[in-house]
Simulated assay, not measured.
Amino acid sequence: MPLAFAASGEVAPRGVHKGAAIGAILERLDIDPADAIGVGDNWNDAEMFEVCGTAIAMGNAVDGVKALADQVTTSIDDDGIWNAFERNRLI
């Protein structure tokens, strides 16, 4: 099976990534991807951002990932996930 190499140094079989996993879960649960929110900080989150209706980069994310995101929250050390969830009325 051919392998895919991510920019972050991760190795996985081609087609195996967070986007594929989230897509499969959303399909199984019959949830519209437009209603999904993905939060990430590195290149291994890029495919997830493509699947989710809202992509949120952490404040400490690499610049290229921030550019892919719909929103940028504060860093992980500054309650970034909490702030993102609060901003999007999840909590």
Rank of each mutant, 00 (worst) to 15 (best):
A61W: 07
A57P: 04
N83Y: 00
E10D: 15
L90D: 00
A46L: 07
E10V: 12
H17P: 10
E47A: 14
W82A: 14
I56C: 05
R14Q: 11
F85C: 13
G38Y: 07
N42P: 00
A6P: 08
D77Y: 02
D32A: 04
P2Q: 11
R14N: 06
L68E: 12
E10T: 15
A7N: 14
A46E: 13
D78F: 00
I76Y: 03
D30N: 13
D30E: 15
A21Y: 11
R28T: 13
V72N: 01
T73F: 02
M48L: 13
A55H: 02
G80S: 04
A55Q: 03
L26C: 10
Q71H: 15
D63M: 06
T74K: 05
G53C: 07
G15A: 08
T74F: 03
M1Q: 11
D77V: 14
T54V: 05
A34I: 01
R89N: 14
W43R: 12
A57N: 03
D45K: 02
E10K: 09
G38Q: 06
A69L: 03
I22V: 15
Q71D: 11
G64M: 05
D70A: 00
L3M: 13
H17M: 08
A61P: 01
N44H: 07
R28G: 14
G38M: 13
N88P: 00
N42V: 09
G15E: 04
V72I: 14
P33I: 00
D78L: 09
A4M: 12
H17E: 12
D45Q: 07
L26S: 06
A21L: 10
M48G: 04
L26D: 08
L90I: 10
N42T: 15
D78K: 11
